[in-house]
Amino acid sequence: MAESDRVIDRSAPIVKARAAERPSGRHINLSRWAVVPTLVWTAIIFAAPIVFMVVVSFWDRVSGKLEATWDFANYAKFFSKSYLLEGLFNSIEVSLITAGISVVLAYPLAYVLAYQVPQRWQKFLLVLCILPFWTSYLVRSYAWSVILSETGVLNTVLLGIGVIDDPVQLGYTRGATVLGFTHFFTMLLTLTIYANLVQISKSYRLAAADLGASKIQVFLRITLPLSIPGIAIGAFITFVITMGDFITPQILGGSNEMLLPQAIILQIQRANDLPMASAMSLMLMITVTIAYFLFARWLRMDRV
């Protein structure tokens, strides 16, 4: 209350004087409770189910029914079955590779957009850059599978220009999954890095250049370090979404390896083992949380 009164003091003294005549707090009561339905919805549909999922992960499926056994059997199984643990490691690997490649591809794009493209074109190109966001990720993955198929566009072009003599297996590989992910996150990282680059004051670069730094030195010692927050935020979002995505690896990846979300869905569909699927989901959540703390620390340290 105190703070808002101060603001009004500055802008409209008359309104404040009148407002003070009113019985204090009369019109505030209704709006104070307006937040309750939202909190209740979030508690019932979001928080409680996830807590319940954690609870069920300590149960077991005994002869087709859920039983509250309260043990770590599912977790023991997760760490002892190599194909389940591999799912987690595959997911981490693919997410890290995706984040790495996306940063390398997106950085120059954001750099050219921020520093080379005339200002009046920047907004238009940014909007253009985010339009494909609105192809659903399912449709986008399907489109990539068409492009990568044995007689698809990419093989046809490569054969046509003589890079290869026979069609190459492009689809249904880990490379295809990474490509599908990278495509999406290059767009996203271009946005986060661009937003960071345009905030860096031009005078820093000019001052460094005046003091005799070459163009490469200006980039390596001024621009790049100052743009690390944009990279870190984008890379973190990339990691989180990639870790939890089922559709892209399901459509583009082959049957040779499985990522963790695919393994979770398989537990539900084939084995109908909800407690096991819960335990695996919790492992996914824990991994993402650990990543959050790693990224947060790294981000802060670089800002100091």
Binding site: L39, I45, F46, F52, G244
Partner: peptide
């Protein structure tokens, strides 16, 4: 605290939100 509570779902994968609901509704 209230801001954090309302924003919380954005930090969790859709897969986890879906799993939580699936299991709760199932039970």
């Amino acid at each position: 605290a209230m801001r954090y509570a309302v924003m919380a779902p954005i930090t969790v994968s859709y897969l986890i939100i879906g799993m939580g609901l699936l299991i709760s509704f199932h039970v």
